[in-house]
Design a protein around this nucleic acid. Sequence first.
DNA 1: TCTTGACTTAGAGTGCGCTCAAACTCGTAG
DNA 2: CTACGAGTTTGAGCGCACTCTAAGTCAAGA
Lengths: 135, 135
Amino acid sequence: MKIGELARRAGISAHTIRYYERIGLLPRADRDGGGRRDYDGSTLVWLEFLGRLKTTGMPIRDMLRYAAMRAAGPATERERHDLLVAHRDRVRAHVAALQSCLAVLDTKITGYASNLTNEAKDDDALPNQLRKPLR
Amino acid sequence: MKIGELARRAGISAHTIRYYERIGLLPRADRDGGGRRDYDGSTLVWLEFLGRLKTTGMPIRDMLRYAAMRAAGPATERERHDLLVAHRDRVRAHVAALQSCLAVLDTKITGYASNLTNEAKDDDALPNQLRKPLR
DNA sequence: TCTTGACTTAGAGTGCGCTCAAACTCGTAG
DNA sequence: CTACGAGTTTGAGCGCACTCTAAGTCAAGA
């Protein structure tokens, strides 16, 4: 698989794939006769996993640590486990924070919506000052 | 309230508050006799709301749009409502993505954990090749 | 043979959101 | 009076994660 196809399948740009290789997030790719990168399916699987880590907000330097451990073999499995557990905990906390923010957003949206409804229903029935303020 | 106290209470730096004022996210603050910024509670409330937007990943340029609408008065309420609804939808989608990533993380963590347990229990009972691979 | 398009490299540039520096002014405590 | 800490300004610098440029190579199709 050439870099273009891998990029398309992983949903990132070929530029980004080369960048990842440069910084060590991807191992140096095998080359074909003309010096072009040639990938197999395992790279796609790895990129998909990196995408999960990225979606969940892991910084590249931590992905590098994980990638280095992976490359170092099974002796690092405990460390890898611990890194993922710590990351999962952070992600869970972040999801909780987002949900609390969503509740605030819902409240505010409801406020705007009822205000807009009132305006449509009884536009001049109340002076502006008596409407529920929105902040 | 001086900028230092506001910063402490909002959980951001005074630098950041001045930066927000510079770019128009905060209105120009009232000054005391010596030209220092003097805030009332409403600024803290606004900063707290901005913090929610930030936590949920809204870029500053969208916060600026929202702030500009707020400053423009009640005529923009429908637009503000729509902006928040669009944002809420994006946040909900992001939460869903995070939860799907969390499921993948859980699976991987379980894989490492069982592998670590096996190693502790019957370290030499199986050749490495027969262990469940972890990717 | 010629053209097209995907690929190669090293390195420069971009956008975001701060974060800090330098040089200065105040108000208050000792 | 002096020292200190907290504030002021403009503008530069930073860390992150790409993203693009320039100049060149290569393989396949018309």
